[in-house]
């Protein structure tokens, strides 16, 4: 079984997110890039499948972006146990999911993966489309929001999360592209041995052909305006708590 895991380097939760001078992207110089949360669950799921199969299966971490932002995330994936990496060097800021999926597909096609795992959405652009788009472009079966997987009779069974606490099992033939919901497993930490070993693992570097085909474009990034009148309460703990008590007792009358 050949499994690709699509990972993305995104700004950490704690990073300060500011619009840059172009007005259409963020100032990356003040941002700490980390792995997208649901992608780390996707990687763990792939590693567990490989361990269960216990054959010559291979897990390949695939990442796109510029080297600065992505190298740490790629190394981390290898340190956790991926067998090798594919780095798609892309200096452009692509924001159209279909263009992004085409860039990936170009380099994934020749590898003929049996399975492609991806996180259900990236916490930066949040389109939630890449895994499904690539599945369609490469003629694979697709499923989204996987919360459990099982290998069965040469197929993969995926428990899909639906809305409001409903679920559904879907069985897919290979090749399949499946997006993984966070919480599906417990992502491992890299071991010291893994970290040392990662340095010797093969990383194929390729360049993204410039797509020039972005059919949707960001024309402006902005800070959302709040519609509500918000009362800011800050200061020392005693005065904050006194004001909260006053609101709960006298304004809202809930205590």
């Amino acid at each position: 079984m050949k499994i690709a895991v699509l990972t993305k380097a995104i700004p950490s939760y704690e990073s300060s997110i500011r619009v840059d001078s172009s007005g259409s992207w963020i100032d990356e110089s003040v941002v700490n890039f980390v792995v997208n949360e649901s992608d780390s669950y996707a990687l763990e799921e792939a590693l567990q499948i490989k361990e269960q199969l216990n054959d010559d299966s291979e897990v390949v971490v695939v990442i796109m972006g510029n080297e600065n932002n992505t190298s740490k995330v790629l190394k981390d994936g290898l340190a956790k146990g991926a067998d090798r990496g594919i780095f798609i060097n892309n200096e452009n800021i692509d924001t159209d999911p279909l263009s992004i999926a085409k860039l990936f597909s170009e380099h994934l096609k020749e590898e003929s993966f049996d399975l492609i795992f991806s996180g259900l959405q990236s916490d930066d652009l949040g389109s939630g489309q890449t895994g499904v788009l690539i599945g369609e472009l490469l003629g694979m079966s697709t499923a989204t929001l996987g919360i459990e997987t099982k290998m069965e009779d040469g197929k993969i069974k995926v428990k899909r999360e639906l809305e409001s606490g409903w679920f559904q099992w879907v069985t897919l033939p290979f090749p399949a592209s499946i997006s993984i919901q966070s919480g599906i497993n417990e992502p491992r930490y890299p071991s010291l041995k893994g970290i040392m070993g990662a340095k010797r693992k093969d990383v194929k570097s390729v360049s993204a052909s410039s797509s020039g085909d972005n059919k949707q474009k960001f024309i402006e990034l902005f800070i959302p305006k709040t519609e509500k009148v918000t009362e800011r309460i800050e200061g020392d703990v005693d005065s904050i708590v006194a004001r909260m008590l006053d609101i709960l007792k006298n304004t809202l009358k809930v205590i």
């Binding site: 159209d96 999911p97 279909l98 999926a101 259900l120 949040g126 389109s127 939630g128 489309q129 499904v132 788009l133 599945g135 369609e136 472009l137 697709t142 499923a143 989204t144 929001l145 899909r160 999360e161 639906l162 809305e163 059919k215 949707q216």
Partner: peptide
């Protein structure tokens, strides 16, 4: 922008080579 739409609408986007602006 439901879970069902996330599950199949990107495939229409790829089949027809048209953009999908989500959420």
């Amino acid at each position: 922008h439901s879970y069902m739409v996330r599950d199949f609408l990107p495939r229409v986007s790829a089949k027809l080579d048209i953009p999908f602006v989500s959420d």
